[in-house]
Nucleic acid binder design. Structure first.
Lengths: 198, 198
DNA sequence: AAGATAAACGGGCCGCGTCCCGTTTAGGGT
DNA sequence: ACCCTAAACGGGACGCGGCCCGTTTATCTT
């Protein structure tokens, strides 16, 4: 397992050496600057290594591959979103009933991903790893939990995947290209839930 | 546009030269043999070119990229599936009402993709092209048509994407790994439709 | 039949991602 | 304070995909 990529909301697990911690920060900073100046496509293992003043091998060892680096880059804003639906104010966070939280989740995810769409699109994992990304797993568990509360008879795991897929970044981006609006997608989410909940 | 990859159910559009047609067939045959003998992962631009006795440039020009080659490989079985839901016997084909056709579509797609899962997983397009694959567009139009007939008030395009996503190869494969069954996924499709149609 | 033209061909080139291994260094134990 | 070991480091090597361009060849025209 690649270290230095702590799962969100889980403590450090392997005690990175001090210089490794430093280099990790340097690399993420360099990558963020590259992304904001020349777009996410400009992030390559070599350029980010050079910009941070370290060797390519260091990037590889720390983040595994290019995708791991991009995932780590996303982690900061992802954690903010996670806090919003795990412990933030209702209706997204606890305090509202499951149906209301579920209703609020779609639009919130939609807007969050859309705000960072460049990075999310660039960081789209390969098919075989798509469901292993910690952030995705957390989203899925959360939605499945809400679905279970709202539709006890349903296959919550499967339905959660379906719901999440309906607001996937890639799909959203595809819809927004021609001129569709975020509002249409939000309405789609609400309609879908309304039909599912009678 | 890459020629030699006619859209399903649309006639040829650019009159390939005779030698090009021959090489295209040679390449596809070589790729199919490679896939069956050493797995889809063994298909690289170079090995397939060598196996067919042509240069790498030829593969590149004909199929655009590795993914285009894999899509072309899938086309043969894909066309069979298309015929099944476009003009085959009910309940999948015309002759049954839209609700019954929609019910039948999920399991049919599920089983079709599962039967060719190795190739479908290998041929998974990059995010930006995911919705441009002709076969996917055809599936989507078909499902959207049925949804429009069954739920006139809904956003048929969006809902069709959601339905298709719920039986996506990558998701299905993810579910089947631990030991889930195709039956569970089929039940999920039927439950989803039942809830949507009251 | 012979020339013209557009298309196809081949294979070399470049860039990127990944792997590897000999070297260096941080950090804890004595 | 010194050493010992495990971890991190650098950067070169390799393989694959995508691209390009000088050469060959099929097909159409007259």
């Amino acid at each position: 397992m690649i270290d230095g990529t702590p799962l969100p909301l889980v403590g450090p697990q392997s005690a990175l050496r001090a210089d490794a911690v430093r280099n990790r920060a340097l690399l993420l900073e360099a990558a963020a600057e590259l992304a904001s100046e020349r777009g996410a496509a400009a992030i390559t293992m070599e350029t980010v290594a050079a910009a941070a003043g370290v060797g390519k091998g260091t990037v590889s060892r720390r983040f595994g591959d290019r995708n791991g680096l991009l995932q780590a880059l996303l982690d900061r804003s992802e954690v903010l979103f996670q806090e919003a639906f795990l412990s933030g104010p209702p209706p997204l966070g606890p305090g509202a009933d499951a149906a209301a939280r579920l209703r609020a989740f779609g639009p919130a995810l939609l807007r969050h991903e859309h705000a960072h769409r460049d990075l999310y699109l660039a960081a789209e994992p390969t098919p075989e790893r798509r469901f292993s990304v910690p952030a995705r797993q957390l989203r899925h568990r959360h939605v499945a939990l809400l679905v279970r509360a709202v539709l006890p008879g349903a296959d919550a795991e499967l339905l959660a995947h379906t719901l999440l897929a309906s607001v996937d970044v890639v799909l959203v981006d595809h819809f927004l290209r021609p001129g569709a609006s975020l509002e249409r997608l939000e309405k789609g989410w609400h309609d879908l839930l309304d039909r599912l909940l009678h």
